[in-house]
Write a protein that binds this DNA or RNA. Sequence first.
DNA 1: TTGAAAGCGGTACCAC
DNA 2: GTGGTACCGCTTTCAA
Lengths: 332, 332
Amino acid sequence: MNIYDIARLSGVSIATVSRVMNGSDKVSGKTRRKVLSVIQQEGYTPNLLAQGLGQGTMHAIGIMVPEISDLFMSSCVSYLESLLLSHGYNYVLSSSGFAQDKKEACARALLSRQIDALLLVGSTYAGHEKSDTDFVRSAAAQVPVFIINGSVEGENIYSSVSDDKKAVYSVVTSMIGSGRKRILFLSDSRSYSANEKLEGYEQALLASSLPLLGELRMHVPSGIHDVRDLLLQYRNLSFDAVLAANDSIAVGAVKYACARGLRIPEDLVIVGYNNSTFAECCEPELSSIDNGLKEICEKTVQRLMRVLGGDHDVEKDVTVPCRLVRRNTTDF
Amino acid sequence: MNIYDIARLSGVSIATVSRVMNGSDKVSGKTRRKVLSVIQQEGYTPNLLAQGLGQGTMHAIGIMVPEISDLFMSSCVSYLESLLLSHGYNYVLSSSGFAQDKKEACARALLSRQIDALLLVGSTYAGHEKSDTDFVRSAAAQVPVFIINGSVEGENIYSSVSDDKKAVYSVVTSMIGSGRKRILFLSDSRSYSANEKLEGYEQALLASSLPLLGELRMHVPSGIHDVRDLLLQYRNLSFDAVLAANDSIAVGAVKYACARGLRIPEDLVIVGYNNSTFAECCEPELSSIDNGLKEICEKTVQRLMRVLGGDHDVEKDVTVPCRLVRRNTTDF
DNA sequence: TTGAAAGCGGTACCAC
DNA sequence: GTGGTACCGCTTTCAA
C-alpha cells in the first residue's frame, strides 16, 4: 500500500495525498476528508525511507555507545531519547564496543544511514592518542558531532563533560579534612574521565601535602567480586578511604570491607561515582558522586538543536558540575 | 558524494559502481581496482536509505522495549543486537513506555521504517485484555512479530517465554520443604509473566496444603526503598520467606530485613528474580532465579532468521527453563 | 563485462 | 486547490 494506491482509491493525484499527509492547508475540506478516509480504511503508513530520500533527511540523530547494557549508558540513552523526541527527532542507536576499529565502523554505518548529527556517549570516544579520534573528526566533516562525557578537539565537534576533576578534588579534600590519610583511588578504565578523576585526586593530595603513593592508585577489573578479591589479595596494603570511579567498583570495596570485617564508615570511608541504583543496593548504602548526567544530556540536546537550526555560535565545550550524594558510607 | 559522482570519476556507469560495491564477480579486475581507488579516495559511503528503497528492505529488525534504562531490557537488547548483527541484520530501537496508545504509536513508527520484523521485549506487550494486543496482530499483518517474555495469540506472531510458573513453583516448594510456612510473594506489575509467577506460587502452596492468604500476596511499588518502607508499615504481618518478581524488589526486602534486624536467611529467606547485578550488590547476596534471558534471545533470533528465510513451520511458542542461582539468602 | 533505463515511494516546484 | 513531473540515490533487469 503506497501513495499511488491511496491516490487512485481517492481519485486524486499523489501530490494531493502528500499534502494531506503533511497537513498542508491548501486542500479543500472535502478532498481532505475523502483522502483521510481512504488512508484510514487501508491502514496506510508512509514509507519513511522514501520520505527521507526525498527530503534528504530522516530527522534522525545517530547515538553511539560502547555497550548498551551498562546502566550509565542506558540511562543516558533514555534521557536523550525523550529529549530528541520532544524536538521532533528520531534516533538510531548503535553499540560500538571498545575496539578502535569497531568504533570507526560503527560511525561509518551510522553516517550511511543519513543521520543529521552524531552523538557519542562515553569518554571512551575521547581516546588517548590523537589518532584515536581521527574518525570523530572525519565524521564531523559530514555532520555535527556531540560527545557526552568526553572532549575531542576539532571543527564541528561539540563536547559536554562533567567536572570530574573538581568533584573528586573536593571529595578527597573533605576526606583528608575529616582525618583520612591513606585514600585509595580505584578505577577500571583509562578513559578521559578516569584521567580527570585521577588528576583531581592527585591535586587534592598535593594541596594537602600528602604523598602521592603509587600503591594507592589502583587499576581494577570491572566486576564487583573481582574488585573485592583484588583488594583482599593486598593484605598488607592499608587505607582508610576509597574513592571509586564508578559505583560498581565501590560496591566491590564494600564487599571487601564486609569480608575483612571493617566498619563503614568508621574504619573505611567509601565513595562511589555516578549515583546509580547500585549505590542504593548495598549495605550500608553508598555515598556517590552524581555526575549530572541528566543536565549534560539536556544541554547537549539543546545545543544540538541550535546547531541543526543553523546557529553558528554555539558553545563548543560545556562543563556541568557534579555533586556528592551523601549516604552512609561517608562521615564528612 | 553519490554513486553518480563515483561513476563519473571512475569513467564507468553507476551499474558498475553498484556491482563493485556489492562485490559482484562480474567486474573485471582492472575496472574494480579503478572504482575502488576512487571510492577510497573520495571516502564514499553509499546512502542506505536509497539502498533500502531500491531493495525494499533495510535488513533491519525493529526492537521495542518499554524502557531502555531498565537493566533487564538493556541486557536483552545487548544480546539481541549482537545476535542480529551476526546474521547480517541491523536493528532500530524504540522505547514505547507502558501506555497503550504509546505502544501502538511506537509500533506504527517502527513499521513505517520498513523493518523486516518486529521484536517486542517484555511481558507488558502481552497485555491484559484481548484488545490490548490488537496492535500486535495488526503489526503482524505486515511483518512477523516476535515477543520475548510474553505470549500473544495470532497469525504470524511468535513468542518466547521462560517457564516462570514452574520456576516459582519449584522454589516455593523448596522453601516449604525447608520449613517455611508464611511465604510472601512480591510483585510490582500485573504483566503476563507476573501472573505466571503468581500462579506458580499459588500452585506450590496448594500442593503443600498451605493456605492461600491474600495478605501474603503483595503488589509493591518499584523503588527499592519504597518496597522496604511498605514492608515496614505492615508491622504485624509476619512472614519467614520472600519471593520477589525481580531483584530490585528483593533488594528492598533485604533492606527491610536490615531495618528490622532480621537475619538472612535464618529469620527470612529471600529469593529474587532475573539474576541481575543487583542481586550481587546487596549484603548478603541474593539468590535469584535466572530467567534464561540469553537463551530466549538466542532462540528468538534463530527462529526469526528461519521465518525471514521463508521457513513455514517454525515453532510459534517456545519455553525456556529458568534456574535458581543460589547465593546467601537461601537455606535450601 | 558493461551500460541504459525502469523502478522503489515519497517531496516539492510549477502550471493550470 | 489540484495535477504533472522531475528529482532523491541506489538496485536490477535487459541488451549490447
